[in-house]
Nucleic acid binder design. Structure first.
Lengths: 122, 122
DNA sequence: CAAGAAGGTCACCAAAAGGTAACCCGGTTA
DNA sequence: TAACCGGGTTACCTTTTGGTGACCTTCTTG
């Protein structure tokens, strides 16, 4: 028997930092690319508006999940990358992913299908 | 080096089932009591409105995180308990809790403080 | 000089989430 | 009969979240 112990306060905090329509996808890309420019991300993520993407990134920076670096110059570029704190979530996110694939495969498939016609990435 | 692999589809699904103002607290109670009546839960959870509690429980039932059993009789009582699928999340939730306690202890403390004057439970 | 690229802001709107209070129903008890 | 209990719904409102399009700024290039 798995005697799992948790309180809800930390859980609340953790879920609040993860909640946002585009955050799972942003995290996904941050985990796979090591560093990514704003416009790259914007082009990769299907249908998100510039404002909202910006604001989700802003929240994630506030929450310390990622770092934002302005490299000034020509066209001034901004690089986002996963932080220590964000990276520490990796295994948990993978487990959430696994849980959904095990216990709700049809819904996962639906999400997948609803996006594949929009974005053929990989 | 932790080579964490996840896609965002399952993550999206998992987070969607966990998102809701009172769900962390509901889960917390379901994990510790094995079975609980609606009004018990309502009295234990500080300030939630009946409607919203009901609707969060409804979503969680739809999502299969918990089971709802009407025991008809006297005043007809309704018992909620964690499901298989829900219980499978236990260790992940504990890890999210641990992550928040490690990386955002001050925010966790804030949530704790903001609720302790309302509810002295345990 | 005109146009474009990168990153960002602003005003405004639409949808979703949450909250409040009143009410319903069936059965019990004062 | 009146009031109460457990569980639940409804109408209505407020707050939060996400979305659209125009605009700005600095620098570069045609």
């Amino acid at each position: 028997m798995t005697q799992t112990q948790f309180r809800y306060c930390g859980l609340n905090v953790a879920l609040k930092t993860l909640t946002g329509k585009w955050k799972p996808m942003i995290l996904f890309h941050l985990f796979r690319t090591e560093e990514i420019r704003f416009n790259e991300l914007w082009r990769i993520i299907p249908k998100v508006s510039k404002k909202v993407l910006l604001q989700q990134l802003g929240q994630m920076e506030e929450d310390g999940l990622l770092t934002r670096e302005e490299r000034k110059g020509f066209p001034p570029e901004v690089y986002y990358r996963i932080s220590e704190k964000g990276r520490a979530l990796g295994s948990v996110l993978a487990q959430l992913e696994a849980w959904a694939n095990t216990y709700a495969p049809q819904q996962v498939q639906q999400v997948f299908d609803s996006e594949k016609h929009v974005q053929p990435f990989d």
